[in-house]
Amino acid sequence: MQIAIASGKGGTGKTIVSSNLAYYLNKIGKSVALIDCDVEEPNNHIFYEPTWFADENVNRLVPQVDTIRCTGCEKCAEFCQFGAIVCLKGKVLTFPELCHSCAGCINICPTSALEKTSRKIGEVQLGLKDNLLIVQGMLRVGEAMSPPLIKEVKRHGIGKEIVIIDCPPGTSCPMIQAVKGSDFVLLVTEPTPFGLNDLKLAVETIRELGIPFALCLNRSTIGDEKVWDYCKIENIPIILEIPDDRQIAEAYSQGKLFLEVLPHYEKVFVELLTSLEEIKSC
């Protein structure tokens, strides 16, 4: 089962939920992979300090010009929607950092003067901690295209009984790439006006993707009732509530899993699993 942990914006507690959920599932003997898809800022490793055992480069396709064959016809430059190829005074220049790897230019070139070459966009790192597989992507600094890397990072979870995906924040392409193919999405928010606003954006996005989802409320004891009211109207189950507890915030600030420091909170995760089972069976 693949569960994606997502939110409409950063700082709602996505990483707190994913890191502690993975810890709990691993502890009760499941075979678990924790996949950190926030490739700009992977933070789950802070809570685990895993032993890294593998590291793979991730490349993607970009065009390269063969200046001998190129006639300067400009067809490629006219075609490219992303401004990644220009033709100036008969010379073709490519800008791989703007390229989306659609291969259109390569297919279009009448003299086959564009060749496929690869560009490194980042790395996938694999780590282990007490049987828990931790996978993260590191986007190369200066690289704008994270979705192809996210796709690669996710591939490493295949084969595990439960795969927890910590998604990048927001509702744009990277988040969608991370959520895609999941069996279930757990949205994380706080019961505040900002939290509600961001939740609505995330809900719209997940509905577009057609994946079943439920809500996790972080710092559930602050704020007002509006998130509950919204969930009632929209028929969204709230299956995990983490209260506003200074000790949780302190554990987080020190890079510690709060379940390890405050084991009495395990009961909220027990309830979460029961709710998940119920949702799955209906």
């Binding site: 992303f82 401004g83 990644a84 703007l98 704008a144």
Partner: peptide, 15 residues
């Protein structure tokens, strides 16, 4: 108003 590649477009413009 373009997000990326403004420099390249401006270069084309003046070339």
């Amino acid at each position: 108003n373009s997000a990326q590649g403004a420099g390249i477009q401006a270069a084309e413009n003046i070339v």
